[in-house]
Each structure stands twice: as structure tokens, then as C-alpha cells.
């Protein structure tokens, strides 16, 4: 006996809850997207500090120097050895000065050093930046993870 299917009766389901959930997910992922993290290199394992609180405003004239434990510096997408940093900083200074209203004194050097980098290297980088006439420096640290004991 042939079984007859009634094709005129279409099976429908309500998609509203699924679309609701999907939009919630889109909004969540959009809000957690942080473009300011783009310039941070994952190779750098920052030292932790309980006083590290979110940076409120990033100045346009910040120059990020990321020190790897291999002894190189990541700056503006380039990787240079520490002795070669001077020419890069001179170039950055020239770029700042040539910009309208740009001043080297307003620029801040942000140092993201790996926790295992020798402190002497960080000091050498600061000295080099001073010779290139930069005056403001900040050292960046990260907030300790929940499982880390406070210092």
C-alpha cells in the first residue's frame, strides 16, 4: 500500500528565539572586540603588578617599544636589535617634528618589556630614547591573574 504524504501542509517552526540568541551573541562579541590590543605582541609576557589598572586614554603621540626576551625591540611593525633602535627613534622624532604642532616633549615612550628581559636592557632603551630627546616614559605591566599570589 502506498503511503501518501500531504505536501500541501508545510512544516513551520518559529525562528524568533534562535535569532534572538544569535543577535545576543553578535552583540557580545562586538563589545568584547578591542582594537587597541592589536599592537600588542603575544610574544611579550608582561610582568604582573597589582597596581596595574586600565590605561584610561592612549595619547596619539605614544610610541610603543616592545622588548622581547631574545633582545630585540618591536617598534611600529619592525623588529630591530637594541643597538639599532637609535635610528628608529630618530626617525620617529623626525616624523613627530614634521607633523603640524608635533613636539617630541609631548610624546610618551611606552615600554612593554618581557618579564625575563634584563633590567639593564630596559635602561639602555630608556637611555637611547633620552638621547633621541624623548622625555616621558611609562613602563607597562599587567594585572595579576586570579591564581597569582599578591606581591
Amino acid at each position: 500500500m502506498a503511503h501518501k504524504i500531504d505536501t500541501s501542509h508545510k512544516l513551520k517552526f518559529d525562528m524568533t528565539p534562535m535569532i534572538d540568541c544569535t543577535f545576543q551573541l553578535v552583540i557580545f562579541f562586538m563589545l568584547t572586540l578591542n582594537y587597541s590590543m592589536e599592537e600588542q605582541d603575544e610574544r611579550i609576557k608582561l610582568p604582573s603588578s597589582e597596581l596595574a589598572k586600565p590605561v584610561e586614554a592612549m595619547a596619539e603621540t605614544n610610541i610603543m617599544l616592545q622588548l622581547t626576551k631574545e633582545g630585540t625591540v618591536l617598534v611600529g611593525g619592525d623588529e630591530v636589535p637594541v643597538p639599532g633602535l637609535r635610528s628608529v627613534l630618530d626617525r620617529e622624532r623626525q616624523a613627530l617634528v614634521s607633523r603640524k604642532g608635533g613636539n617630541v616633549r609631548d610624546a610618551t615612550i611606552v615600554i612593554r618589556g618581557d618579564a625575563a628581559v634584563p633590567t639593564g636592557t630596559v635602561q639602555e632603551v630608556i637611555q637611547m630614547a633620552q638621547k633621541a630627546q624623548f622625555e616621558k616614559f611609562v613602563l607597562r605591566a599587567r594585572e595579576p591573574l586570579a591564581q597569582e599570589a599578591p606581591q
Binding site: 535569532i19 544569535t22 543577535f23 551573541l25 553578535v26 562579541f29 562586538m30 568584547t32 572586540l33 578591542n34 590590543m37 600588542q40 608582561l46 604582573s48 603588578s49 597596581l51 596595574a52 589598572k53 586600565p54 590605561v55 611606552v110 630608556i126 616621558k136 616614559f137 611609562v138 613602563l139 607597562r140 605591566a141 599587567r142 594585572e143 591573574l145
Partner: peptide
């Protein structure tokens, strides 16, 4: 919408909060 979800999921990075010390 699914394309958007996939894009945002792939660009999601959990990074620790960072702070500065002035020198």
C-alpha cells in the same frame, strides 16, 4: 549573522588588563 558571529569569535582575544608606571 552567522558570518558576523564567526568573525567576532575568531578575533576574540582574552588579554589581561594592562597598566602603566610613570618614569
Amino acid at each position: 549573522v552567522f558570518q558576523l558571529i564567526i568573525f567576532f569569535m575568531l578575533t576574540l582575544r582574552y588579554t589581561a588588563v594592562e597598566g602603566d608606571f610613570n618614569i
